[in-house]
Amino acid sequence: MTDTILETQDLQISFGGFMAVKNVNLKIARGTIHAIIGPNGAGKTTVFNLLTKFHTPTGGRILYNGTDITNWKPAEIANHGIVRSFQISAVFPHLTAVENVRLALQRRLGVSYHFWRSKKVLQSLDEEAIARLDQVGLKEFAHLHAVELPYGRKRALEIATTLALEPELMLLDEPTQGMGTEDVGSVTDLIRKVSKGRTIIMVEHNLGVVSKLADTITVLNRGEVLAEGPYEVVSKDPAVMEAYMGVSAEEAEA
């Protein structure tokens, strides 16, 4: 076991001649929260899709615990402990909260292809699913359809589902996007709570959230790494200020 859980080497992808991500080298330290930030169109979500295999890179390598996973399929990496969330809340809207979480637990029973069996066999998972919901404060909502939950709670449900897989590495795509201040606070707390014993990579727009949570920040701009380091260092980096504010460091000081 190394201290680096995930590493990319010269990662790149181009879409018909447009280089969306160029030579990105990341080293994610085990047990930390690593944030990827950057202005719109910087390639954050693309990097995310590359890491979770929703895109196949056109160059470079991805190493997970020292294993080359560059050509793996999305379902495969999920079975090896990398689970992602999505920018828009990713729940199964017309299933109940408990069914949502149970879908994460179900694979372990090895009955998912058994179309001839009653789904009563899944009831053995209900207790654990409800415990997972309790963890994120959703116990009372267990039997409601996900579509009926307010937005912040949908995100909590999504995190509960992700956690049910006991991922070693969690990737959160803009976990607080579109949330009111109150929800942002509770989701931030939730992320800190669940980060114990695992590694989290998150793409996030809200710098307040990033400054509170992230151990390391990578700033992307135009598909390239602009700066990397803890918040205090990165936030004072003149190149970052220019990319974010559209002003040079001197102008900002003036």
Partner: peptide, 15 residues
């Protein structure tokens, strides 16, 4: 039903 509701999510859960 999970696939019907949200295929990318079902994929990310390992299906």
């Amino acid at each position: 039903q999970a696939i019907r509701e949200n295929e990318p999510r079902a994929l990310s859960l390992g299906y």
